[in-house]
């Protein structure tokens, strides 16, 4: 190794200016990629970006018709909200991770011909997923207003919305961590995609999206809840629900008759996995650090395998 003649501080200056240059460069790439990702989804449809709002609504409607009838929830109008909360969060995760997984290999042409940081691609997929989440949140607000006709605007601009925003960084760290692992694994093993799709189905059933955890009773129920608590997605879904669904579901029942009180108790019961922001950030940071470590460790061989 050649020893440089320049003094130490100058080397340090060069080092920092390099970091700054890299940061500016990557910021612009990520920005452009996110823009493309969001646009590309509905580029050829007549209503364009509106689909991002409509898609979760239609999805919710289908699930409401199917599962509402099966589980007998269809009389409860707040069930649509219950479904939508779970659906939005889970689909954001699903979209971000599946897209990130193939992002490195799909951009093989770019990576082998230009010097680009590998992380740029999973990162832009995750940011666009969060952008889509924001659009889905609009859908959620619409449903909130429809379900709770008493004082709709109170919920829209309430503390709860703020709480929902607070969980987003933790959620982002979590999905980004998962994405990094998957993206790295996919470079080495292309059949991971099939395994992950199967795993996603299992993951969806292990997350209370359409069923309520309080309906599972007995020893099996206790055991099931214990397993659910080990699933980070449950915490994200349940937290998001606690700050949106539960609160509206409770206030939408205004009378004080015995039946109404029972109903309120049932709603409180339906969120039996109590979680808090600290837990969410714990999961988020743990997955992020693990993902980053795995990604950086496998990065050195990407170029030959891709």
């Amino acid at each position: 190794m050649n020893t440089s003649k320049s003094p130490k501080f100058q080397r340090l200056k060069i080092f920092f200016s390099n970091i700054k240059r890299e940061f500016i460069k990557n910021k612009n790439i990520v920005g452009q990629l996110v823009k493309r990702n969001v646009k590309v989804q509905y580029r050829n449809s007549a209503i364009g970006i509106l689909w991002t709002v409509l898609n979760p609504l239609l999805n919710m409607l289908v699930m409401y018709l199917v599962f509402g009838t099966i589980f007998g929830y269809s009389s409860d109008k707040t069930y649509v909200l219950y479904l939508l909360c779970g659906n939005i969060i889970f689909n954001t995760m699903r979209g971000a991770t599946t897209q990130s997984m193939t992002s490195l290999v799909n951009n093989r042409g770019l990576l082998t011909k230009n010097k680009i940081a590998f992380q740029v691609f999973p990162l832009s997929c995750n940011i666009s997923a969060i952008v889509n989440l924001a659009f889905s949140y609009i859908a959620l607000l619409i449903v909130m207003m429809v379900v709770d006709t008493s004082c709709p605007f109170m919920h829209v601009f309430s503390l709860n919305m703020f709480k929902a925003i607070l969980m987003i960084p933790a959620f982002f760290l979590f999905i980004y961590g998962v994405s990094l692992v998957l993206a790295a694994a996919y470079v080495y093993f292309r059949d991971i995609l099939h395994y992950y799709n199967i795993f996603l189905t299992l993951w969806m059933y292990m997350t209370p999206i359409f069923y309520k955890t309080n309906t599972i009773s007995g020893n099996f129920g206790k055991f099931f809840v214990m397993i659910l608590k080990c699933n980070p997605m449950v915490h994200f879904v349940e937290y998001f629900r606690a700050v949106t669904y539960r609160m509206i579901a409770e206030t939408s029942i205004t009378d004080t008759s015995a039946e109404a009180v029972k109903q309120v108790a049932a709603i409180k019961d339906s969120v039996i996995i109590d979680t808090n922001l600290l837990t969410l950030y714990g999961w988020g940071i743990a997955f992020f650090v693990a993902g980053l470590l795995i990604f950086s460790a496998s990065k050195r061989n990407f170029m030959y395998k891709i």
Partner: peptide, 25 residues
């Protein structure tokens, strides 16, 4: 044009490809 997105317009591609080559906005 390794980074070209053929569904996007030429203008969008200039910005995308330019970013990949390391230019700021």
């Amino acid at each position: 044009g390794a980074g070209f997105d053929f569904e996007a317009t030429a203008k969008e591609n200039i910005y995308l490809n330019g970013a990949i080559l390391g230019h700021s906005k």
